[in-house]
């Protein structure tokens, strides 16, 4: 929230910034607010910033949908799923029971470990990182991922009890 406020003040103060904000929120049909007396300027600026924030989120989402390759989207959905599962188990452990603790360790570390493996696979197959991993082909990265997953699951199921 705090950075947004900073932005809103700057928009209220300078007309060029207001124009920039208005142009960025292209989807809104409202005309850009004209500079007004300072009493009403604050209220209007809050409205315009909220709109700007959501519109920027929308922009981020649409650009993610447009520009991200399909295989990275698949990886991202897996990572989201792992994160939610891990959080659910951690909340269960905190609020209800951690007995047997080994089962908690097994279940929770499965999500964490798989998340880490997925993150490494994602960074290695991302075309934007080609210069960072010049020697690792996507096939090699996927094979590493499968090998690491097998080892991880071996330990996880031993821990579960």
């Amino acid at each position: 929230m705090a950075p947004k406020r900073v932005v809103s003040r700057s928009t209220a103060d300078s007309p060029s910034a207001v124009a920039a904000a208005a142009s960025s929120s292209a989807s809104t049909s409202k005309p850009a607010p004209v500079i007004s007396p300072s009493a009403i300027a604050k209220k209007q600026s809050v409205v315009s910033t909220n709109a700007g924030f959501f519109s920027s989120l929308n922009g981020l989402w649409s650009s993610y949908l447009d520009t991200t390759p399909k295989n990275l989207k698949l990886l991202d959905s897996l990572q989201l799923f792992l994160m939610l599962t891990g959080i659910a188990q951690f909340v269960y452990c905190l609020t209800i029971t951690n007995y047997p603790f080994n089962a908690f360790l097994g279940g929770f570390s499965a999500t964490v470990g798989q998340f880490v493996l997925t993150a490494s696979l994602r960074s290695q197959v991302n075309p934007a990182n080609k210069e960072v991993f010049p020697t690792i082909s996507p096939e090699r990265a996927f094979a590493d991922f499968v090998f690491g997953s097998l080892i991880l699951h071996f330990f996880v199921y031993n821990y579960l009890g």
Partner: peptide, 25 residues
């Protein structure tokens, strides 16, 4: 132990999701 069913379920869902991902990949 019934109290640990979420942990068993969590581990199993991770395996299922990983296999599903591998197949889709």
């Amino acid at each position: 132990i019934t109290g640990a069913l979420p942990y068993y379920g969590g581990a199993a869902s991770v395996s299922v999701a990983t296999i599903g991902f591998v197949v889709l990949w």
